[in-house]
């Protein structure tokens, strides 16, 4: 710093409290340009008769489409629930000190992540050609009675999902500070309780975002079940355009519904993430106004 007199007199004007922000001309121009391009594109799409918007509107709430939509949603929910529960069990098994449990879990994950879902679905659907009868003890069933398109779809989607969820959950469990498990142990908690009360709630922070991702993939993956004659959303629009030949408009109907569901899920995921970030600094607006101190060890200053 030079000690010249002119800088001295400037000091009052240098108070950042008096600062002005220049008008963001470039940013505004970019916004206007982007909006113009987007509107232009939307207009071109809207007036193009090949998209068949009147047909889209006509079939958007068609009973067949609605039925397919419910099948898609139901399949997604059921397969996802089974996938998460089974994935949790697999993750715990894979992390356990028991070699048998961890090997079995690894084998499962290796197989179901290593083969295409489409192939798995076809295998489940054609199970009766491999095992015409299934028997447990003295009870025995005709495989074709057990493996309907519905059960093949659920089993195929759920087992595949479980393999992916196992790795996501394992990553989440590993992300929790080891001191937490040790503390739970020191207080005499058994493994199950320590997991349920202490480890999993903290792991959720890193489990939820990729699980949201999985859920969205799952909604779209359910469209694969149309190959085993399961009447999901895609299958139902296909069944209509096979009749009417209005392929693009009917696919647009499906696309709009897929986008609608995933949009809702995005909102839900945000809410869940905020819940599991509680206890984090500044995670909710209410937290931000409270006083708090530096997070963990080493540098704990009191800002009161």
């Amino acid at each position: 710093m030079s000690g010249s007199a002119s800088i001295q007199t400037d000091d009052r004007l240098r108070d950042v409290k008096l600062a002005h922000v220049p008008f963001p001309v470039t940013r505004l121009a970019l916004w206007i340009f982007t909006l113009a391009v987007a509107l232009g594109f939307a207009y071109i799409v809207a007036i193009n008769p090949n998209f068949g918007w009147p047909v889209v509107a006509q079939y958007l709430f068609d009973p067949t489409v609605m039925q397919g939509l419910w099948v898609t949603l139901g399949l997604t929910v059921v397969a996802m629930i089974i996938g998460v529960v089974l994935g949790l069990i697999l993750a715990i098994a894979r992390m356990s000190n028991d070699r048998l449990a961890s090997s079995l879990a690894s084998l499962f994950i290796w197989f179901f992540r290593g083969t295409p879902l489409l192939v798995q679905l076809i295998f489940w659907y054609n199970m009766s050609t491999l095992f015409p009868r299934i028997s447990i003890g003295i009870a025995s069933w005709d495989t074709n009675d057990l493996i309907t398109p519905l059960t093949a779809a659920i089993v195929g989607l759920a087992l595949n999902e479980a393999a992916y969820m196992a790795e996501i959950i394992r990553g989440g469990l590993l992300s929790v500070d080891k001191g937490q498990a040790e503390t739970a142990e020191a207080f005499g908690m058994n493994r199950a309780r320590a997991l349920w009360r202490i480890i999993i709630p903290q792991a959720m922070k890193s489990i939820v975002p990729p699980t949201g991702n999985q859920l969205i993939s799952m909604i779209k993956a359910t469209s694969l079940v149309s190959v085993i004659a399961m009447a999901d959303l895609l299958y139902s629009v296909q069944s209509i355009y096979n009749r009417t030949f209005e392929i693009i408009p009917m696919l647009l109907v499906a696309v709009l519904w897929y986008l609608f569901i995933t949009s809702i899920l995005n909102v839900g995921q945000g809410a869940i993430e905020r819940y599991y970030n509680r206890g984090d600094r500044g995670s909710t607006p209410a937290d931000r106004t409270k006083e708090y101190a530096t997070p963990m060890v080493g540098a704990a200053h009191e800002h009161v």
């Binding site: 001191g179 503390t183 142990e185 020191a186 207080f187 206890g279 060890v297």
Partner: peptide, 18 residues
């Protein structure tokens, strides 16, 4: 059960953050 009768305080506090 044995541990549950012994209290322990850790260097890094190890409070449950959630």
């Amino acid at each position: 059960v044995q541990r549950s009768k012994i209290g322990m305080v850790f260097q890094q506090f190890n409070l449950y953050p959630h």
